[in-house]
Amino acid sequence: MSEQELKVIEMISRMSIDRASQVFSKTIKAGSKIEIVRFQRVDISEISEEVSKEDKEATGAIVQLSGEAPTKLLFIVNLKDALKLTDLFLRREIGETKAFDIYVESTIQEIGNILASSIANVFAKGFNVEMSPEPPVVLSDYSSSIFNTVLMDEDYLTDNKILLVETKFFVVRTAFDCMLFLMPSVEATKVLLERSFANNFS
């Protein structure tokens, strides 16, 4: 992929993440911002090594966006903060949820679904790409084991590198340790580029 093409994919990703950011704020009824902190083709060995250094107990929703531009999304939250998110989602005072239970798991599942859908909506509307989310799979595990599970797909690798859109969340008055990773497949980047240029996006 050329530098110019990579720029186009980055712009599309930024638009979709901005939309996800608005939707996330509305979901938890709190001002928040999701910022892209890395947009890069990364080597699978290097990224998994990097992630394992920051290892923590986490819960993550893996969502497959199916259709013409297959893309994977991983929404991952430190276990303690997943409890806080559950309180916000259920419109309770933070601190009410004391332990990991089916409601926490379900909150992460639903936030993963809402974020993935909002991203698919941007791709579908803006670039005329058929795209919709599969039901999320929720895993509670080491963050790096969850991350590695997402990497295990040859359709997403070129020369053992994956295109990674890494984000961080900033929520007003509340510290949250959660991240969203977006990984377009090799096919997805091709289709998104074709549609972008077809729409005179350049």
Binding site: V23, K26, S117, A124, S132, P133
Partner: peptide
């Protein structure tokens, strides 16, 4: 009541007989 805000799904739901379509959140 769905997070999918796409014309294709809206049309399919309405054509199939849904009475309304609300987008999450």
């Amino acid at each position: 009541i769905t997070a999918i805000d796409q014309r294709k799904y809206l049309l399919e739901a309405i054509k199939s007989g849904a009475v309304d379509y609300i987008v999450k959140p």
